[in-house]
Design a protein around this nucleic acid. Structure first.
Lengths: 180, 180
DNA sequence: TCCTGCTATGCAACGAGTTGCATAGGCAAT
DNA sequence: ATTGCCTATGCAACTCGTTGCATAGCAGGA
């Protein structure tokens, strides 16, 4: 389990409440690590109990109080130790690929609309990545280590989306060829 | 859950025992869907009880008997229905990306060896994909629908590995820049 | 005014997935 | 002879992750 580590990184980049973390996981971090608010709250409580993170109650007017968490020294140490461990093999779950192979035993054209829907959502994500890149990493700007590392991860996302778009075009062409 | 569907596709392409399925999931299918033998045996029993697949006991000499499963008509119907449902959003778990961002709060050069290890394993996988492609899909050969769909999924894997290799080079260059 | 949605946290129950272990015969190498 | 690995299946216990629901005040639109 590495949800702890993803949360620690997020809190080091910027302290925040469970709710704020959940929203970050829906947005930027969710591109390479997903989590629901339930998981996040549970893990936050455990990490606080273990002393990895520190919590501060913050009163707000007009909305409920929140607990703002930030990474504590033991948390940083845990993260540093984890960094030196080898990455565990990822568990891949590529449902669309399963469906494409399944289409051989059914009507391949039944998949066309779904693949097109995918294509659109990947195109939209690519556009968001690119505009985020222009906003946060303008050409020629001096970047510190944290920003350079964030940028290289974003570039990975951009290249992944470009590759996926090209592949989905290939899939569509194949499906159309089979439909004739 | 779509492990049922991945198993159904695999059994339609080729009937087999739980053990054989587990090995297929370690190899070809595991590139886009991973599963342990425990999961597979459990799901097979459930699918057999539900009539999605049929089992046949096969005696072997020199080794234990095995149960060879094949997809039954209700299973095919389930698969056809599933094909028409929208693909669920994938849950992404990209541990290396988390580590790269974590490196900003530690020594970035601690990651170099790990990234290089990744680079090697992706290069090896690409080589295996390419040799598999030459073997199974030689240029100019006539392919039926099933083979064309398998081929387009394989092309996706190949392009993914190529993109990943280029990105890992980008990551290494970034880490080296930060190390000076 | 009612309905919807947002912020903010949490419980309870369930289902999915992992880990460790067990059985059991055969094969190959040390 | 013993050790270790391969085929083949399975139990039990556990952790991880998801889903549905609950609370509770405030803001904005129909």
């Amino acid at each position: 389990m590495a949800l702890e580590h993803a949360i620690l990184v997020s809190l080091l980049e910027q302290p925040g409440s469970g709710y704020e973390l959940a929203r970050r996981f829906d947005r930027s971090i969710g591109r390479f690590w997903t989590a629901t608010h339930q998981q996040i709250y549970r893990v936050l409580r455990r990490m606080e109990a273990d002393g990895w993170i520190a919590a501060e109650e913050v009163a707000q007017d007009g909305r409920p109080d929140k607990k703002v968490y930030s990474a504590a020294a033991p948390g940083r140490a845990v993260l540093a130790g984890w960094l030196r461990e080898p990455v565990e093999p990822e568990t891949v779950r590529h449902e669309l690929a399963v469906k494409i192979r399944a289409a051989a035993f059914d009507d391949p054209s039944a998949l066309v609309a779904e693949v097109e829907r995918h294509r659109e959502s990947h195109a939209a994500l690519l556009a968001r990545y690119l505009s985020g890149e222009r906003r946060d990493f303008p050409a020629g700007a001096a970047l510190d280590a944290q920003q350079q590392l964030q940028h290289v991860v974003l570039r990975g996302g951009i290249e992944y989306e470009r590759m996926t778009l090209a592949w989905l075009d290939d899939v569509l062409a194949t499906l159309h060829r089979l439909g004739n």
